[in-house]
């Protein structure tokens, strides 16, 4: 470790390490709290010192906070909304990428504009709308996962730009060859483009999934029944009801929610970094 090494490379590592510590401390704290049997704020340190699974057990056994139910609700919402969003976006992206039609340019720009308006700004109208919908069809009203998912599907075209950009890089000769072989326009889409676009579908799917799992505003207003809650409002309820004593249970739930998402992010890292530079924003 010479002085020169320090001047040229060492200080870079020093800066990087500071950032790593800053990034990791809260994460370590959650892990530590989740496995700390006492589960209180006072007894929890950044470095885990004790190990117990008591909070995980309590998550699955306390009927007052039905974590499995929230998990299931969240998975249903995420799966439905992500599927619809990626499918609708891919369909529209196909039209925008492969067809030439009147209003194409205007349509693309309109989508870009609408995308920048967060849907939740219209929360008051959405609330009265779902209330009315629930009076007509109780299965789609307030406190239903179906009604909540339906509202979130309003963002069905949020990923058009990303997917269209990817479709544009797939040579047109491929679809033309398929058409010569007798494929219809639907055949080209489902058999040629979708399989080739798997990486971008994975990334947009992940972005949609993360967006839905973290949605709090609409969920907190639409889903107030304990059994209708998603993880976001459910876990919020746990920590809010008793900040100092429920830390362990909350951390255990948080860990189980975050772990799969973090692993997916690591797995898809390469594609995500590519997508970011073309303007994707996680919310």
């Amino acid at each position: 470790m010479t002085v020169r090494w320090w001047r040229e490379v060492g200080w870079r590592h020093a800066g990087g390490l500071v950032a790593v510590v800053f990034a990791v401390v809260p994460v370590l704290y959650v892990v530590s709290a989740a496995f700390n049997p006492l589960g209180t704020v006072v007894s929890t340190d950044v470095i885990p010192t004790r190990f117990s699974l008591v909070h995980f057990q309590s998550l699955f056994s306390d009927p007052a906070r039905p974590f499995p139910r929230w998990l299931l609700n969240t998975l249903i919402v995420c799966a439905m909304v992500t599927f619809v969003q990626v499918l609708c976006s891919a369909l529209a992206a196909y039209a925008f990428s492969r067809f030439r039609f009147k209003g194409r340019r205007g349509g693309l720009l309109t989508l870009l504009l609408i995308q920048m308006f967060p849907q939740f700004l219209a929360v008051i109208a959405l609330f009265t709308m779902v209330t009315e919908l629930g009076e007509a069809l109780p299965a789609l009203g307030l406190n239903t996962i179906a009604g909540y998912s339906l509202v979130l599907m309003g963002g069905a075209l949020a990923q058009v730009w990303l997917i269209k950009g990817y479709f544009d890089t797939i040579p047109r000769q491929l679809d033309e060859a398929a058409v010569v072989d007798g494929a219809s326009h639907a055949g080209v889409f489902f058999r040629i483009l979708l399989p080739l676009a798997r990486p971008i579908l994975a990334v947009t799917g992940l972005l949609a999934f993360v967006g839905v799992i973290g949605e709090f505003l609409l969920a907190s207003i639409f889903l107030t029944d304990t059994n209708a809650k998603t993880l976001a409002v459910g876990l919020y309820g746990i920590i809010e009801s008793d900040r100092s004593n429920n830390l362990g249970v909350f951390a255990a739930g948080a860990l189980m929610t975050a772990l799969p998402v973090v692993l997916l992010f690591q797995y898809l890292q390469r594609y995500i970094v590519g997508g970011l530079t073309s303007g994707a924003v996680k919310d």
Binding site: G16, A19, V20, A23, V24, P26, V27, Y29, V30, V41, V210, I213, G214, F216, A232, L235, Y236, I239, R243, L247, F250, A251, A254, T257, A258, V261, V262, F265, Q266, Q269, V273, K282, D283
Partner: peptide, 25 residues
């Protein structure tokens, strides 16, 4: 470095925020 620094970005936001809210006590 990149894998570790990705962590705060990958964790669902509401979880991070609620964890931090305890830090400010």
């Amino acid at each position: 470095y990149r894998s570790i620094l990705l962590l705060p970005y990958a964790i669902p936001g509401f979880i991070s925020i609620l964890v931090w809210s305890g830090f400010f006590n």
